[in-house]
Nucleic acid binder design. Structure first.
Length: 430
DNA sequence: TCTGGGGTCCTAGGACCC
DNA sequence: TCTGGGGTCCTAGGACCC
C-alpha cells in the first residue's frame, strides 16, 4: 500500500504567529483581541482568536474597521519583523532536536520528517510541540500525513477541532477519509479562489471529492499543478521535501509610501533607499544580480483618479551587488519610466520597489574581459555593512535618500525589538 | 495552382502561498 | 486621509532559427 510505504511528514505551524510573538513579551495582550498590521499600518495580517471571533478578516483594511476596533477594544500593533524573524529562528532551533530532517517552509511553518518513529510518532510530535511552547513561548499545532499536502490538511484539522489536542495524525487511511469528507476544497493547500470556483462548477466541494476526481480532469481544468495536488491527496508524494533550501531566484524590496510621492526627486529618494536595501540583502546572501526592475504606481484603489504605472527593466553588466551600481541602475530606470515634468506630472505614486532577478552566487559570477577592477568599492561596501550592522540599519545611507524622508512607511504602533536590540530589552518589575 | 514544420528561448501574466 | 510584502511555479504566445 502506498500509505504504508510513504514516509510520515509532520507540519508544525505556529498559531497566529505574529500575535503570539507579541504576547510572549507583553502579557497584557492575552485574552483580548489583538491584530498585527501590514507595513504602512494598512491592514490586518495577523489576528488573535478573539479578533477572528469579531469577524476581522485576513487583510482587512484598518480604516474600514476603526469603529469596530474601538467598540471592542482591539489592540493593533505595527509589524515587527525583526522580532518575528528572531522568534522563528528560535522555534526552528528547538525543532532540530526532534528530527534530523527539517524543511523550513515559511516564517511560521516547518515540515519535519518523522521517518523511523513508528507508533511513537504522535507522542513524539506532542513532545516537540510542548518543547516549542516551553522554550519559546509560542503555541503551535502539528499535522501528520504521508504527503506535504495531507500534513497541511492534518494541521488544519488540528487547529480547527480541539478533539485532536493540537496533534492530528492522518497516516491512517480511514481516519483520513473521515476528515477529508468534512474539509471544504477552499481550505486545501494550493486551491485558491480561481481553482475553487472551477472545481465548484464541477460539483467538487470537499477534499475527499477532489481526491477522487480523475487525474486527467484535474489536468484539464487546472494544470499539472492541480493534477499533482490530486495525487498528493491520494497519498502519493509529488512535492519534494527540501531539507536543503534551493538557490533563490529573485529578491525584492517594495514599500508603500507614508505620503504619496508626486515629484521625481522624492520618488528617486525612495528608489534609492529600496535599491540600497536590495544590495545589502544580496551581499548578506553572497549573491549578485543580473537584472533589475524598478516599479512604481499610483493607488489602484482610487479608480476615479488618473492612474499610471511603470516597470522599466535594466540589465546589470557586470552582475553586481554593489550599492552604487544598483542605485545608479535603479534611478536611471525609474527616470526612463517617468513621464512628464520631473517636479510633478499630476500623479500621486503610492508604492515603489526594486526587484532583482537572475541571481547568482558571487563566486560564480562570470568574469568579464574588461571588468573594471574596483577594490575600493568592495572595501567601501564592507565598511558600510559593518557600520550598519554594528550601529543599526540606516546609520549610514547615501545622501540621495534625502533628509525629509516623507515617503517612509508608517509604523506608528511597533513594539520594541525585545530580542535583538540591547536598548529595547524587556524590563521586569520585581 | 502552389505558400512548412519543428524546435528553442524568452517574457508577461496568472495563480498560489505565507 | 487611510487597502502589505516577498516569494514560487506554470503556461501561452511571440521571436527566432534551420
Amino acid at each position: 500500500m502506498l500509505e504504508a510505504s510513504a514516509a510520515p511528514i509532520a507540519l508544525i505551524d505556529c498559531n497566529n504567529f505574529y500575535v503570539s510573538c507579541e504576547r510572549v513579551f507583553d502579557p497584557s495582550l492575552h485574552g483580548i483581541p489583538v491584530i498585527v498590521l501590514s507595513n504602512n499600518d494598512g491592514c490586518a495580517v495577523a489576528r488573535s482568536d478573539e479578533a477572528k471571533a469579531l469577524g476581522i478578516e485576513m487583510g482587512a483594511p484598518v480604516f474600514k474597521m476603526r469603529e469596530l476596533m474601538e467598540r471592542h477594544g482591539v489592540k493593533a500593533l505595527s509589524s515587527n519583523y525583526t522580532l518575528y524573524g528572531d522568534m522563528s529562528r528560535r522555534v526552528v532551533e528547538v525543532l532540530h532536536s526532534y528530527s534530523p530532517r527539517l524543511d523550513v517552509y515559511s516564517i511560521d511553518e516547518t515540515f519535519v520528517d518523522l521517518t523511523g518513529f513508528g507508533d511513537r510518532m504522535e507522542a513524539h510530535a506532542a513532545r516537540m510541540r510542548a518543547a516549542v511552547r516551553i522554550e519559546t513561548g509560542i503555541p503551535t499545532c502539528v499535522g501528520i500525513g504521508p504527503t506535504k499536502t495531507l500534513s497541511k490538511l492534518a494541521n488544519y484539522a488540528a487547529k480547527k477541532n480541539p478533539i485532536f489536542s493540537g496533534v492530528c495524525n492522518l497516516m491512517n487511511a480511514d481516519v483520513r477519509d473521515y476528515v477529508m469528507r468534512r474539509i471544504p476544497i477552499g481550505e486545501i493547500w494550493g486551491v485558491g479562489s480561481a481553482t475553487e470556483a472551477k472545481l465548484t462548477a464541477q460539483g467538487i466541494k470537499t477534499a475527499a471529492e477532489l481526491r477522487d476526481m480523475p487525474l486527467a480532469l484535474g489536468r484539464k481544468i487546472g494544470t499539472v499543478v492541480l493534477e499533482r495536488l490530486v495525487a498528493e491527496l491520494r497519498g502519493i508524494p509529488c512535492v519534494d521535501f527540501e531539507d536543503v533550501p534551493p538557490q533563490r531566484k529573485g529578491m525584492a524590496v517594495t514599500r508603500s509610501a507614508g505620503t504619496p510621492m508626486t515629484s521625481f526627486d522624492v520618488l528617486a529618494q525612495a528608489i534609492t533607499a529600496h535599491a540600497t536595501r536590495a544590495a545589502e540583502k544580496l551581499r548578506q546572501h553572497g549573491l549578485v544580480a543580473g537584472t533589475l526592475t524598478v516599479f512604481y504606481h499610483t493607488n489602484p484603489h482610487k479608480s476615479d483618479r488618473p492612474q499610471h504605472s511603470a516597470s522599466p527593466i535594466i540589465r546589470l553588466h557586470p552582475m553586481s551587488n554593489h550599492t552604487f551600481d544598483l542605485v545608479d541602475a535603479a534611478v536611471a530606470a525609474a527616470r526612463r519610466g517617468w513621464k512628464g515634468d520631473p517636479t510633478g506630472n499630476g500623479h500621486s505614486y503610492t508604492k515603489a520597489g526594486v526587484i532583482l532577478d537572475d541571481l547568482l552566487a558571487e563566486a560564480d559570477r562570470p568574469a568579464m574581459l574588461f571588468q573594471p577592477d574596483r577594490p575600493h568599492d568592495a572595501r567601501l561596501t564592507a565598511a558600510l555593512d559593518a557600520i550598519n550592522d554594528r550601529f543599526g540599519k540606516k546609520t549610514m545611507v547615501l545622501a540621495r535618500e534625502g533628509f525629509d524622508r516623507r515617503w517612509t512607511t508608517r509604523a506608528e504602533l511597533r513594539s520594541p525589538r525585545y530580542t535583538t536590540r540591547l536598548s529595547e530589552l524587556p524590563t521586569v518589575q520585581v
